[in-house]
Amino acid sequence: MATSASSPALEVEGLGVSYGALVALDGLDWQVGPGEILGIIGPNGAGKSSCYDAITHLVRRRGRVRLAGEDVTEVSADKLAARGLKRAFQQNAFFNDLTVAANMRTVLQDSYGTGLAAAIFAPWREASRRHRAEAAARGLLLRFGIPEEAHALRPTDIPYGSQRMLSIALAYGSGAKVLLLDEPAAGLGGADMARLIALLRELKAEGIALVVIEHHMDLIMSVADRIVVLDRGRQIATGTPRDIQADARVLEAYLGRSA
């Protein structure tokens, strides 16, 4: 169960995905509450990324998806994002021809953008919104651990650790109720890993529901409230990190042996 006393921020029921005869996911049931971190782990090919594709309506799927208690199964991917369900992908995705700051301003257009008519007939209003967007972008970048000296650079010219944080910041955008992260710790270590852990805990403290796919077991065991384990497209275990570490089915899936 979710740690929050309120209704789940995100709930999936009977979630399934098939690609022709291949069943990628079959019958997933889990939920995550506001201010909770749910980890999703499993061997390569277990269906973890397919789970995110299904939740965000990027593939045809079976089952139901509920956001803050509302059935959003038929809602399109872009409208899900507008409702606060945001996703960061496993591979960094940037506008590579724009600076880091311009990347951030671009994803804030839903809050600070103006239409053509306003730009022509009320340029002072457009200028005011642009200045506010610049300030908001700077604040978000700093909040996500991207130093000011990197803001004028292109994403590919900043350190890899900052690139990973930028991908999360861009997914978060102008705010999220549920944030899906796909292997955010990939390639990180040392200070970069510490910054990621601090950020996850900060977002959790703000009441955001976090769902984190991760292969870095030390990270997920230290930050997750609960963990869902997938194997061959099926949900084989759900529980606290301590429960998962002692589950014979999980050891079988990862190590090829029982406890």
Rank of each mutant, 00 (worst) to 15 (best):
M1R: 15
A5P: 09
S7H: 03
P8G: 07
P8Y: 01
E11P: 10
V12A: 06
Y19C: 13
A21G: 10
L22N: 14
G33W: 00
E36F: 03
E36M: 07
E36V: 00
I37W: 03
I37Y: 02
L38W: 00
I40C: 11
I41K: 05
I41W: 01
P43D: 13
N44F: 03
A46H: 05
C51T: 15
Y52H: 08
A54V: 05
A54S: 07
T56W: 02
L58Q: 13
V59L: 05
R60C: 14
R62I: 11
V65F: 00
V65M: 06
V65H: 02
V72S: 07
T73A: 08
V75G: 01
D78M: 03
K79E: 13
K79T: 07
K79R: 13
A82T: 11
L85N: 08
N92H: 11
N92D: 14
F94K: 06
F95T: 08
L98N: 06
T99W: 01
A102Y: 00
A102W: 02
N103F: 03
R105M: 12
R105D: 05
D110F: 07
Y112D: 05
T114K: 11
A118C: 15
A118G: 12
W124V: 12
R125I: 11
A127R: 15
A127L: 09
S128P: 08
R130E: 13
R130W: 03
H131V: 14
H131G: 15
A133S: 12
A137M: 00
G139Y: 01
F144H: 02
I146Y: 00
A152P: 05
R154W: 04
I158F: 01
I158R: 02
S162L: 15
S167Y: 05
A171Y: 03
Y172I: 05
Y172K: 09
A176I: 02
K177H: 11
K177T: 11
K177P: 08
A185W: 00
A186Y: 02
A186D: 05
L188P: 05
G189H: 09
G189N: 15
A191H: 10
M193A: 14
A194P: 08
L196A: 03
L196V: 06
I197L: 11
L199D: 04
R201D: 10
L203W: 01
A205D: 12
E206Y: 02
I208P: 01
A209Q: 03
A209F: 01
E214I: 08
H215E: 10
M217D: 06
M217A: 10
S222I: 03
V223I: 08
A224R: 05
D225R: 07
D231W: 01
D231C: 10
G233W: 00
Q235W: 04
A237G: 04
T238F: 09
G239Y: 00
T240N: 08
P241A: 07
P241N: 07
P241Q: 07
R242Q: 15
D243S: 11
I244V: 07
A246K: 11
D247T: 01
A248N: 07
L251K: 15
E252K: 14
E252G: 08
G256Y: 02
G256H: 04
G256R: 06
S258Y: 10
